[in-house]
Structures are given as C-alpha cells and as structure tokens.
Design a protein around this nucleic acid. Sequence first.
DNA 1: GAGTGGTCTAGACCACTGT
DNA 2: CAGTGGTCTAGACCACTCC
Lengths: 264, 264
Amino acid sequence: MPKKNEQIADDLRHQISSGELAPGDQLPTEIQLATLYRVSLGTVREALHTLRSEGLLDTRLGRGSFVRHARRRIVRRGERHQREHDRVPLPLEERQKTGAVEFDTGLDFVDIEFHATYRPEQASEELAELFGISAGTKMLHRAYVSSQRAVNAPVSLIRSWLVWDMVAGNPALLTDANEPWAGGTQHQLSTVGIELGRIVEEFTARPPQPEEMEMLNIDQGVSVLFLRKTSIDTTDRVVEYSEVVMPGDRTIAVYTTKLERWSQ
Amino acid sequence: MPKKNEQIADDLRHQISSGELAPGDQLPTEIQLATLYRVSLGTVREALHTLRSEGLLDTRLGRGSFVRHARRRIVRRGERHQREHDRVPLPLEERQKTGAVEFDTGLDFVDIEFHATYRPEQASEELAELFGISAGTKMLHRAYVSSQRAVNAPVSLIRSWLVWDMVAGNPALLTDANEPWAGGTQHQLSTVGIELGRIVEEFTARPPQPEEMEMLNIDQGVSVLFLRKTSIDTTDRVVEYSEVVMPGDRTIAVYTTKLERWSQ
DNA sequence: GAGTGGTCTAGACCACTGT
DNA sequence: CAGTGGTCTAGACCACTCC
C-alpha cells in the first residue's frame, strides 16, 4: 500500500518536471488538492512540504503555492583566495574592477546588492580560544549580506570577526562606511601590515535556522551549506574568522587539488 | 502567542542540553507528552520532528524516541588526494598501513567496516559528456559503503565510474574481490599507466533521499553533504568520476588554501 | 498481546494577502 | 471582505517491536 502523501508528491513532481506545471504557475489550493485526490488536508500538506524541501515550490501565506523558477547555481571557487591575494598589490582602479563575489558568480557588479554592518563586540570563549586571546577582548564584528538584485535571492550571509587592536592602526577599517572595499579583506589587512599565509575552510551541511530561512529566502527543508573560514597570516597567527551560510539548493563550492607529479 | 510545537521543542531541547535527559535516555511516549503539555498528538509530533532534524533524537517505530549519543564528526581533508598520490610508488606493505578513510577519520583500521560492489554499466548521457565518450559505452560502476563499526554509523556512500576499456588492461581492477585495495583508486589507476594530475570537487547541500536516510542511518530533516569528484590525469583526460553522500550532521569537509607570497 | 510510533481523517480557528 | 495557508484538535486504524 503506497503512502498517499508520497503518491501526491510524486504526481505533482511529475507535472512540474514535464512542464504541465510551469515555473511561476500557481498550484490548486490545498483544499482543491484535497478534494481532487480525495484525501484530507493534512495529507496534502505533507506532500507540499516534501516538494518545498526539494526546492520545487514556493509557498506564501495567504497567497498560495507556486512552482519555483529554476534558480541559478552560484559557484564558489577555492581559487578565490589566491586570486584576492594576487590582487592586493595592484593599484586601486585594478582592484575595483572585479570583486570576489563577482568572481564567484560570474555576474556583473551591478547585479549584486551588497550590504555590510560593522560593530564592536567582546570575544566569546570560542573566539578567544581560536585567536589565542582572552575572552572579552574587543573584537570587530562584521556582517555581510549579498544578493542577486534581480531575483531577490541572497547568495550568502557572512559573519566575520577580527581582533580590534590588530586592525585599529587603520581607522578606515573600523567603519562599514568604506564597504564594499576594493580588494576585499586581504587588502584591508594589508593596510595594517598583515599578509595571509593560508586559509582553512570547513564545510558542513545542516537545516536552516528560522532567521536564515527568512534572510536567504529559502523554505524549511532546504539545506544550507555552512562554512567556517579561518585566515592565518604568514607568521601562523589567526587574524580573521568568518562563518558563511549559503543556500544549499543554489550553491556549489568547488575545490581543485593540483597534484604534484611523482619524481620521474 | 508562541507556537506550542516550538515551545515543546525548546523545552525538550533544554532538558537535553542541561543533561536532565542524557544520551540514550528514552523520552516519554508521544501520548504521555501530549498529556503532559496538554496538546494534541500532532503538535507533539511536530516538536519531535524538529528535534530529529537537529540530530538530537533517534526515533524508532514501535520502540520510542531516544536522546542521541553525540556522534563523532568525521573530517574529510582535501590533502587526502596529494597524500594518496605520494603513496602510490611505495611498496605494498607501506600502502597497506593506512588508507584514505582512516586518514580522514583518525580511526583505527579495525574500527572501519568497508564494503564494495562492482558491476558493469552503460554510460548515461551525462557520464558520456563528462568523459568525452559516447553514451552507452561500457563503464565500470563501483559502489562503496564505509561505516564506523561500533556505532553503526555510515561515514559515506560512494558511487564511482571508470571507463571499462581504460582499466581493463589489469583484470584485477574489474572485480570487487580485491577491495579494499591498498593505496586506493590512484594506485589502482597507476597499474594501467594512469597518473592523476588534478582532482575537482564540487560540494552542495541537500535533504537526504529516502534510500539515503536508511543507508546513512539519519532522519528526515538531517541534511547531506553531496560531493561530485572528478579525477583528471596528467594528459587532461577525465579518468574517474564519483558521487559521495555524507551525513551533514557528522561530516566536516576541510580545504586548506596555501597562499603564494607576494614577490618581495 | 500490549505498547509504540506512522499515517490519515474531518473538522476548527487564526494570520496573512489581495481587492 | 473573501480566500489563502498555518496551527491545532481529537480522534481512528495500521505496522512494528518486544515480551
């Protein structure tokens, strides 16, 4: 005996993949679907929940359920770091040409909306241990949201921490008024004499938190890619830590490992 | 007005994090919880669903809901590829000492259960395009499951494809009877004269498919990390492609980018 | 056989959206 | 305002686990 909610989900999924239901189309209301499939409302809602988790539907309270437009996959390449590093010594106008986000997405600058908020913060236990400082040390907390303007689709949420005294030598680094900063964080750090030596990135996948669902415009059940990035300078000191939340249904993180050949 | 299901989830979550409910403990039955919180069964079930998706509960049909033991995070490092590459020329006994899975996990060999299944398969359109061959070409399909024996916790599901004629020169590569193969895929390929030049890995996050939920022993709502890995040899030819599914609640993928210094 | 979670029903009431 | 999805209720019946 097949489960009714799965049968309904399968049927609607086929209608979507076959084009019978096109992107942007509104589905029948839940009550209509319940009548149509001769099941109760709860069963229909389970089926719709499944499809939302697969990123096929966009359901809005008071409006209805709609077939999602296929959303462009954003590619985030590991090469971005070396590229940003290489561009630090370049003159301002060169650095301005293309930032990291545009490099990742392949989109034009004008398509990307970018918002930054800076504020001082005291180091938590976890941050203190990571940076090798004592808890309560003054930090600079920076929060970024970047979106594709056209489709109201945030690309990532970023929270970043720096040790205040490490960057305070350049007051321009302490205010979000100078964002977006041409050349990114690596150039910012270079203005206080810091050069990065390596970057460690740790990926996990998890369900979104309620706040993230709202900010990334994703539904419950869509996973997020969660990235912890630690930047270490050429003297092996942790100088920056950030956490990046990316929508799992439209992000690809790419890392290329070039292998050194065997000695012939 | 707070939502009842979230209140219940919060309450139970606090009981778990405070230790009031310890790992392995059985929760009250759904009916008991419904009576206790004076709500209906459906509301309790929503709360339990939330906690399962957070990896805090393990619910078994006919048995009950139990607090999960914290599960060890498996770390998968990008350095694994260069390491495997470096070990290809080593003698058998050296290669046998530690395989890639043990390198990733830090676990002893005896803790890891490993199962491989080989079978011939015809190339799909997608595979054909990737390898630059024609659809229907004979491929070697290999499926791997590796688990931590003690906790019945699969670490990853791997499906891998090779072009049959590319590896048929060594019949030992065509049967799963020789798995686990000391030195891994890179050594296997070396026996037919192939050396890898680079490996491209693409990560996404998504909800698990029903079959994956069962095989990875995860619940609905736990995300999976999905990895597409393409191995390219020193002549820029795609020689292997694999798809890896890892449980998002206990996997960390780590990539370290070493930055080349600015010329002084 | 007793107890558990899994699925489903047929309602009720509320919050939000559009006109 | 009417129409939509969101939450919740109070049951029913089934499948599975364990004794």
